[in-house]
Simulated assay, not measured.
Amino acid sequence: MPPINLAIVGVGKIARDQHLPSIKGNPDFKLIAAASRNGTVDGIANFTTMKSMFEAMPEIDAVSLCMPPQFRYEAAYEAISAGKHVFLEKPPGATLSEVASLEQLAIENSVSLFASWHSRYAAAVEAAKSFLASATLQNAHIVWKEDVRHWHPNQDWIWQAGGLGVFDPGINALSILTHIMPTPVFIKSATLEFPENRQAPIAADLKMTSASGIPVHAEFDWRQTGKQTWDITVATTDGQMVLVDGGSKLTIDGKSVEVPEQSEYAALYHRFANLINERRSDVDIAPLRHVADAFMLGEHIFVEAFND
């Protein structure tokens, strides 16, 4: 089977750090074009708009959309309407309604749509899910704290309405939680801290409960300095399970669990190729739904201004 002709749209930090190396290492794809207002990729055709790219290169089969979520719907709509398979960076859209619309459009155009959640493909996540499936859970605690100045320097879009703020990393924790928990989880209350000069939160505290009555507490903060923390702890009658470093490491009852090495984005592109070849879509919006619920139920507290 010939490789899938792929284009990347939005050539920024995430595209360069994760997408381009993963595409290069996957023989199922051949990167032939890029469209971006500000960036280019060496060795392939580059365009400033998707429209001009599609007009010049109708042989493109699929696109990976790496622009901020506020602008992703229009790009995805254009690509799907042109008959292209679409890979959506996380979060898949700025609103739930946008993603629902794209899912229906993909069905109508017989193309694959992939709402990617890279943290679900961290090396230890599947082992954690397997353990929890047969355990009796008592409670869960998420601590997801990092330094926004390190990870998103001078990225104003992330502080604008729809940019998600601290939920940009926090949604990674929610993507793991919704994948590994044996029963659904619902937000009961939330506190969101907004810098007085920003439209998106810098911290969030979520109180949740599973369908089976298990309490879940999540703490997200973008003001962490020093060691960064991306941990999920679940207490069970079979011992404490801890996912560390964003799901890359796992301990159960204090003992390390051996897991296979795995690149998150390499796994995402493997999944995308399979979806295209099978003419299927994968559009799970559970993590984004939790973020929407947090904004719906959350108490808004204003804190001191934040500046890069």
Results as ranks from 00 to 15, higher is better:
Leu164Cys: 07
Gly93Asn: 13
Thr183Gln: 15
Ile276Tyr: 02
Glu59Phe: 06
Pro287Ala: 03
Glu261Asp: 14
Arg120His: 02
Val143Lys: 15
Ile60Met: 11
Ala200Asp: 12
Arg198Asn: 00
Ala62Ile: 06
Asp231Trp: 10
Glu196Trp: 07
Ser134Val: 13
Phe29Val: 05
Gly246Glu: 09
Trp159Val: 10
Lys207Met: 06
Asp17Phe: 06
Leu206Val: 13
Glu126Cys: 04
Val143Trp: 06
Val244Tyr: 10
His85Val: 14
Leu113Lys: 00
Thr40Glu: 05
Glu78His: 06
Ile301Asp: 02
Val244Gly: 05
His152Leu: 13
Lys129Met: 00
Gly163Cys: 11
Glu78Tyr: 08
Gln18Tyr: 04
His19Asn: 04
Ala173Gly: 02
Ile8Cys: 10
Val166Cys: 12
Glu126Ala: 11
Ile32Ser: 06
Ser52Arg: 10
Ser134Met: 08
Ile180Trp: 05
Lys13Ala: 04
Asp245Arg: 05
Phe167His: 07
Asn154Phe: 05
Ala292Ile: 12
Leu268Val: 01
Asp168Glu: 14
Lys255Glu: 13
Ala218Ser: 09
Ala273Phe: 07
Ile301Ser: 01
Lys255Met: 08
Pro69Asp: 00
His217Ile: 09
Arg37Ser: 09
Met181Thr: 01
Asp221Ser: 15
His19Phe: 08
Asn307Glu: 12
Ala62Asn: 04
Leu288Tyr: 00
Ala294Asn: 11
His300Ile: 15
Arg289Thr: 14
Ile23Tyr: 01
Ser22Leu: 10
Val216Ile: 15
Ile171Glu: 14
Thr237Cys: 01
Thr191Tyr: 00
Glu219Ser: 14
Cys66Phe: 07
Ala173Arg: 02
Ile142Ser: 03
Glu126Lys: 08
Asp221Ala: 14
Phe71Asn: 10
Asn46Leu: 11
Phe87Lys: 04
Asn197Val: 12
Lys51Gln: 10
Pro182Leu: 07
Lys13Arg: 06
Asn38Leu: 05
Arg279Met: 15
Ser110His: 12
Phe54Met: 08
Ser110Gly: 04
Asp238Ser: 13
